[in-house]
Design a binder for these strands. Structure first.
Lengths: 385, 385
DNA sequence: AGCGCTTTCGCAACCGCTCTCGATAGGTCG
DNA sequence: CGACCTATCGAGAGCGGTTGCGAAAGCGCT
């Protein structure tokens, strides 16, 4: 039968409920509750153990407070003590436990980055810029991709909340309209900085490029190349990026007295699969456009591919301008004229703004940084030599 | 003068050392040590607070253990209690603190990924595959890029150690020869799985493609297209990827009785800047090659660009084959013939292997998975129609 | 009523580290 | 030689969870 683990008693054992699936017993002789120990209970102790400050402390016969302070470089530690601690730390290959540190200080020294994707090189470049600022400042980043889905974006925000990030940098999904999931951060006092893909309704700092200006100049360039019937392959209208670039297009057309017909404007949701049909729609028009301004480079490139497959000559029959200057845009033939964005700078200033907000004592007023774009003219639009 | 914070005493105050830069005082009347509080000491309490299980517990008048167990779905909690807890958790928008959880369980439910870069889409695709396996399993990933520098790679390993990741997935730098920084993980019992970029000397699980086979088939394809003088733009020889692809090249050449001259083999260190001079070196040979097998697509693309700029006709004068099938390779003209790797699958199986090792009780024997490549023939090598 | 079992909770220790409060051994000075 | 200071270190309370050990209340049955 069952034997008491303590006194070895066998008879005076009573069952005492089931606890988490396991039968529990009670020894009436020694008044001891116990459950049957697992058969392989003799695990080889805890297999993994990384050195802690206690290890250093006991090796040096000092208290853990002393070790902690020595490691942090506090002023009230004897230089020799500090030296010994540092040396021992190095010797034992001590790596501070960020989980414990974060718990104790209620700071994780981590910032979260949410991007829709990182297949195109646009976001990767921005992330690199972000890391270049974050890392030296003692922060590391955790990168989430929403995969252009609102649901995933929400899941991402929950992960970041759970990870207790100190701040968030985000570029939202094309389908993001509701911003409740970002309000959580604000309620918790976690600063957010948005970049590139903004949508309204959130009072936070932002880093953008001058989309309107870039679009205007891109379309103006097409006009100067002799295009009369210019189409716009636009982005989602819930994003500023979509609205501003559309507005730049419209204003340029108006300023040069060119008509804008409804059929000349189509929208796509920024996903790869969605670009091709949109481009096709434009090139299949009864009276096709002689110029196309695409909301971004992937769309521009897709337009080039569709045009080529249809035997439409670029730029003779249709001139094309994109936005962002993806590396691929320089490789494709003809090269895609586009508006270059300072990716590195976007990443850096975004994180810079965020760190300022994180480290300032009291809440700072949201600010907006607008960076300039640069028109890169390539063969896809160069009708005149 | 100085006033005691406790009793308000002004006279019987003695200085008592300097503590962390601030003057400390001692009130003799109430025997109380204190430092001058900061002027703006009246901070608006703690500005940030996320709800904890204690909040739920006190709202429901139960103990935090009960809340904890209810949240985990333990069996010894009344269904109604659990329901109430879950509802309150939802109501208070409770997000578990992963730092605390990790500390308590000595598990961070995080895996680290170290890649050399993620500008080219090779690694991003793998990362996406990795996340698709890790996330559903309850793990999230923290992505580090070594930027193709050993030093950064070492820093990355330290970050991952500090973050107490449960496992590591890595693809090493071209300049990684010494593997001490990975041994740390092994010493701490943290499993590692390597993929793609392997170097010897570490007894861990690996996920690779059949580099030798792919290279052989790529070169064989060039031979079948009529190339006689085939060059190899190779990778670093400390990486298996470099050695195996070289070996495939050499063996194919030997099997078809084609001579291999030293000048036909050049190496590059896998960085973008380094590819162009290497390509140039090959194309500038007194007797230039009529076929080039590049160790990867970025090198292949760079070779195409250099050839085009020199007026060398592809594939007529020189046929080119790459490795990896980057999206760009399909866009460039002529399209780059290449060996496609199952990126998604690499990411998934790598993480799958890792999770197995993490979750198995006792240490598992390292295993190696080898995946197949697929030859994608495009215009860059198609001499015969 | 009393006994034996269950069901359902609570207490408290612990994870690794920070930080406040306080203590103590010497040095300085009148 | 005390009174004061200073420099340096330690004890211990959290941070937010998890979990082992027990306990109290309730139920069925004799």
């Amino acid at each position: 039968m069952v034997k008491c683990i303590k006194c070895g008693e066998v008879d005076a054992i009573a069952k005492s409920g089931i606890i988490r699936g396991k039968q529990r017993y009670f020894c009436k002789r020694c008044e001891y509750y116990f459950t049957q120990p697992a058969l392989v209970a003799e695990a080889p102790t805890h297999r993994r153990h990384q050195t802690t400050i206690m290890d250093i402390a006991s090796a040096l016969q000092v208290s853990k407070s002393t070790v902690s302070r020595a490691l942090q470089g506090h002023s009230d530690i004897n230089v020799n003590t500090r030296k010994a601690v540092l040396e021992m730390a190095h010797q034992l290959d001590y790596q501070p436990n960020l989980l414990a540190l974060g718990l104790a200080k209620s700071r994780s020294y981590t910032i979260g980055i949410i991007v829709p994707e990182f297949i195109n090189s646009f976001f990767p470049y921005i992330i690199i810029g972000a890391q270049q600022v974050a890392n030296p400042a003692g922060y590391h980043v955790i990168i989430c991709q929403s995969n252009e889905e609102l649901e995933t974006e929400i899941a991402n925000t929950n992960v970041l909340m759970s990870s207790r990030v100190d701040g968030v940098v985000a570029s939202v999904t094309a389908e993001t309209g509701n911003l409740d999931h970002f309000l959580k951060f604000q309620r918790a006092g976690i600063p957010i900085v948005m970049f590139n893909r903004i949508c309204d309704g959130l009072d936070v700092s932002k880093v953008l490029v001058d989309d309107y200006d870039g679009a205007y100049r891109g379309v103006e360039h097409l006009i100067q190349q002799g295009c009369k019937r210019i189409a716009h392959l636009g982005g989602p209208q819930n994003l500023q990026i979509g609205r501003q670039r559309l507005k730049g297009y419209l204003d340029a057309m108006r300023d040069y007295n060119l008509p804008v017909e409804d059929e000349l404007i189509v929208y796509y949701n920024l996903t790869r699969e969605n670009a091709r049909p949109a481009a096709q729609q434009l090139l299949d028009l009864p009276v096709p456009p002689d110029g196309i301004f695409a909301v971004n480079d992937p769309a521009g490139i897709e337009t080039i591919l569709v045009a080529k497959s249809k035997g439409v000559c670029i730029p003779h029959d249709v001139a094309i301008v994109g936005f962002s200057n993806e590396p691929t845009s320089a490789l494709i033939e003809p090269g895609l004229t586009t508006l270059a964005q300072p990716l590195d700078e976007i990443g850096k200033t975004t994180v810079q703004l965020l760190l300022n907000e994180i480290e300032s004592e009291d809440s700072v007023l949201p600010s907006t940084r607008i960076l300039k774009t640069q028109l890169i003219v390539r063969a896809s639009s160069l009708k005149k030599p």
